[in-house]
């Protein structure tokens, strides 16, 4: 299946979930990872400094037209949508989607269009329904969707919405997501 991009979406409780997930990934992760975490428009890069302590993968707040590199983690900047183009990233200041900017749906839908079946989407904890439509878009293109088991999520609504909107390939406890991703992305190389 050859995974070429991993996209992740998180909201309420996302920071501690991402901490666990990113720290569990192997040091030379073979695929680029793009993350939309809901955050306040004034928040700056503190989140990235915090997460960077827990992983040897380099986390970068996206600048427009950054090229996609394997093993690099791309974090959506506050108050911008993050979109995937073939080979690079692009930003937009279009209106919030379902009150969110960055919007997980926008990230996932653009990934699904640019990388189709080579896309893996991961929906984590959150107290809204963002990401459900995007996860469905990834499935519609033949990609893979992994959802955090709501029983292990601080916010259950977001994973539940994704599970009821589309057919997730895997519903996993938080601790199992990183090993599963590592296997999935390495096997396909």
């Amino acid at each position: 299946m050859n995974v070429q991009i991993v996209v992740m979406g998180a909201s309420l409780g996302g920071l501690s979930a991402l901490k666990v997930l990113l720290s569990g990934l192997q040091p030379k992760f073979p695929v680029p990872i793009a993350i939309a975490q809901h955050r306040h428009r004034d928040s700056r890069s503190d989140i990235i400094d915090f997460l960077q302590h827990y992983t040897s993968l380099e986390i970068r707040e996206v600048e427009d037209k950054d090229s996609l590199q394997p093993g690099q983690v791309y974090f959506a900047p506050a108050d911008y949508h993050l979109l995937i183009e073939p080979g690079y990233l692009t930003l937009s200041t279009d209106a919030p989607v379902s009150y969110a900017r960055p919007s997980i749906d926008v990230l996932f839908e653009s990934a699904a269009e640019s990388y189709r079946e080579h896309t893996v989407g991961v929906i984590l904890t959150g107290a809204n329904q963002d990401g459900a439509r995007g996860a469905a878009a990834i499935k519609a293109q033949g990609g893979t969707v992994i959802v955090q088991d709501p029983r292990t999520a601080e916010g259950t609504m977001m994973p539940k919405a994704a599970i009821s909107t589309t057919t997730a390939d895997q519903i996993l406890p938080l601790l199992d997501i990183a090993p599963y991703l590592s296997a999935l992305c390495s096997l396909s190389r």
């Binding site: 070429q4 090229s67 996609l68 590199q69 073939p86 080979g87 690079y88 640019s114 189709r116 080579h118």
Partner: peptide, 12 residues
């Protein structure tokens, strides 16, 4: 960032 990204699978 360099510009030598791995070229993604060419999509129709």
């Amino acid at each position: 960032m360099t510009t030598s990204e791995p070229s993604p699978t060419k999509m129709q």
